[in-house]
């Protein structure tokens, strides 16, 4: 710490820093965090230990036991994979939603408290108001998602006489575009637009959330945009003109090194 920032406590500083950081909370020291700040100097990172890459894609972990479903059936998983890959496709910049594990991320989220709207107001009456008043549905988010996937598949059958996963890329995009425009109804007044927004937001979350949630495999989402992930200090570089390209770290790294 003291090596990194002039304004840090003077000599004997590591111990001082620990001490001072704990003072305000009655002597408790946040060991891991402070330790990370001291030892995990900027640009001094080792790659994550458990992230072997395959020569083909450069991104696929050898085995990821997190990648199984706790909510979707196989068909639902496949439609989600096909749709999210069109929202965030693989290109010259790097992997797309599939290689990043986005569909597994979505599956895991929908199985948990957020999928069941657990921390949201769920008392009735559920009445449709103005757009400025927000969501009014009594249907849980994870149910909306499954109905949305069915609506995608049905719209594909109707237009192309094929399931969504069998469509060409341009056809998939056409279906997603009508969904986004609200031309496809999901159920009971829920427009394709609300479902599409949910799908798009969850895709970006799966690309960029910490890998602990099942997406952003091997931090490849972060790497594409030079986002350093979980770092303890930028005090040394925040005032600098040069862009500080930094190997990312995850919360797993934070835990593992302490």
């Amino acid at each position: 710490m003291a090596e990194q920032q002039k304004e840090q406590p003077p000599s004997g500083s590591r111990r001082q820093f620990l001490k001072y950081s704990g003072t305000a909370i009655g002597g408790l020291v946040v060991g891991g965090v402070i330790g990370g700040a001291i030892t995990g100097g900027f640009n001094k990172k080792k790659p994550a230990a458990n992230a072997p890459t395959s020569p083909q894609t450069g991104t696929q972990p050898a085995a990821d036991y997190n990648h199984a479903t706790m909510y979707f059936n196989q068909r639902q998983l496949q439609i989600t994979q096909a749709a999210t890959e069109r929202i965030f496709p693989k290109d010259d910049n790097g992997p797309g939603a599939n290689d990043l594990g986005v569909a597994y991320y979505i599956d895991h989220q929908l199985a948990g408290h957020w999928g069941f709207n657990a921390r949201e107001y769920r008392m009735g009456p559920f009445v449709k108001g103005e757009a400025t008043q927000g969501d009014y549905q009594s249907i849980n988010r994870n149910e909306v998602f499954l109905l949305g996937l069915t609506a995608i598949d049905n719209a594909s059958q109707k237009k192309y006489q094929k399931g969504f996963t069998d469509l060409a890329d341009e056809e998939k995009d056409a279906i997603l575009t009508s969904l986004e425009k609200g031309d496809i109804e999901v159920i009971n007044g829920i427009t394709g637009k609300s479902f599409f927004d949910l799908l798009r937001n969850m895709t970006l979350e799966g690309v960029y959330a910490d890998p602990l949630y099942g997406g952003n495999v091997n931090m490849e989402g972060w790497k594409m945009r030079n986002y350093p992930g979980n770092q303890m200090s930028y005090a040394k570089i925040v005032g600098e003109d040069a862009f500080a390209k930094t190997n990312p770290l995850s919360l797993h790294d934070h835990l593992a090194t302490h």
Binding site: V127, E130, T132, G134
Partner: peptide
């Protein structure tokens, strides 16, 4: 935790206020 308590909102007194669910 909004499941326990939230606010309701409307733009004008002519509207029926609805709960902020999320």
């Amino acid at each position: 935790d909004l499941s326990k308590e939230t606010i309701t909102f409307r733009n004008t007194s002519k509207m029926t206020a609805l709960p902020m669910r999320q």
